[in-house]
Write a protein that binds this DNA or RNA. Sequence first.
RNA 1: GGUUUCGUGGCCGAGAGGCUUAGGCAACGGUCUGCAAAACCGUCUACAGCGGUUCGAAUCCGCUCGAAACCUCCA
Length: 487
Amino acid sequence: MSRNKLTIYNTLSSKKEIFTPIYEDFVGMYVCGPTVYSNVHLGNCRTFISFDMVYRYLLHLGYKVRYIRNITDVGHITTDTNDEVDRIGEQAKLEKMEPMEIAQKYTVYFHQIMEQFNNLSPSIEPTATGHIIEQIEWIKEILNNGFAYEINGSVYFDVLKFNDSYNYGILSGRKIEDLLSGTRDLDGQDEKRNPLDFALWKNASPEHIMKWSSPWGMGFPGWHLECTAMSSKYLGNEFDIHGGGMDLKFPHHECEIAQSTSANGKTPVQYWMHANMLTLNGKKMSKSTGNTLNPDELFSGKNQLLDKAFQPMVVRFFMLQAHYSSILDFTSEALQASEKGFNKLMEAIKTINLLPFSEKSSVDVKSLVDKFFSAMNDDFNTPILIAHLFDAVKIINSVKDGKEFLTQNDLLFLKENVECFVYNVLGLKTNQDEQNNNKLNEVMDLIIDLRKKARDSKDWPLSDFIRDRLVQVGITIKDNKESTSWI
RNA sequence: GGUUUCGUGGCCGAGAGGCUUAGGCAACGGUCUGCAAAACCGUCUACAGCGGUUCGAAUCCGCUCGAAACCUCCA
């Protein structure tokens, strides 16, 4: 099996490493999920699509995967000052709702979008608010070990103290001295002993809405802590893969490592994976700067940047044509190119079923399928996989044209693997409208039949009229030698 | 300023010391077709710049120029 050949680029070591899970056959994977205070944007989606692909391939290799992706429903402070403004609380005031209504509203939206992108559900999708007790336990442990201090009802992680015993910055490659010299002066008097220290628990003022009681008074947990608490609860103190967007590498993931290490004495994660940014106009998509595109706008085409609407699967395909660790720039033109490629691929999959088989094969499908695996084994190289799938497309079309030949076994083998990699691994599917719409199919059969009659009697005005009207409805007619199909 | 990356043909985007003509899109020529569309065949040989290492570099090293992410919430 090609399982033991899977390599993963580990951002902790900055190297590709052979993937060996802690427990044979089982993989634990944690991915940082969204903060649900507003609509997910396309950049967020890229990360989740990337890790969905990783999840799918691990499953394809036969691993039993426990995939955890959290929902951050505690609104963490927006600035490092002491003003205690949190995003969910702010949004709640803005929309005149309870904070949990905000969290619910945007969680539901998030799920809808994930489904449209054909992302599989994680095994567990824990919420930060559902794990306050666990987070408090972690703080106690870190305090016990002497790596945190309490002040005015807040608890801070002592980065300098930690760095004396361990190494703060192993993930991001930062040095304490550099970090210190780079810190800015913040407004107001800071409770922290050191600007690098981060909050494990924040004291909440009476006006603050989202708060819980703790040994240190009413407050709310620090952002970095929830992932530590939830990943360890469901995957153990040491687990295989931790993923997230590049922008979380520092400080979020660095702090997670520090928290776990300070409590357990060892680093929590074997393989750190970081999905790169989706940019718009050459700049990272970001809610705070407003440089975003929402999936809805893309699916409906209602945005100035777009010439037309795009199906979710086209967008997914577009993203998978780039490697997850590369920055990908979004443009309408690039998406249109992907749309054509996607349609070509999906058409070929349909035609596999119509191919004739021969006594002998003129192409080596086994070695082609091997290439599918080796592409994915090379740090989930989906662009290479897709390139090889297009080799398969070429073969399929050539067999259709009688220029290449395949035996029944080879044909079946090719069909199974192409379908498997396209549907199960890349998570692509044909557009919803095309599926399970028997009535439409029958009506279309009828229309094509009528048009055929018109064409047989050389009634070109009528046959073209039918074709043009269908185009207006969004259906394209394709006349082949023997038959007519539509898309 | 510091840390981490990156700069590939008209566009998107892989590759990482010597054959990948990577792949997709676009363009051009052809086959097919009532005309289209789609398919198919063919054409299009690039690695920011300047040095260096090497028998050999897009790939390694140095410098220059340019871009991004992070150092504040962020996927």
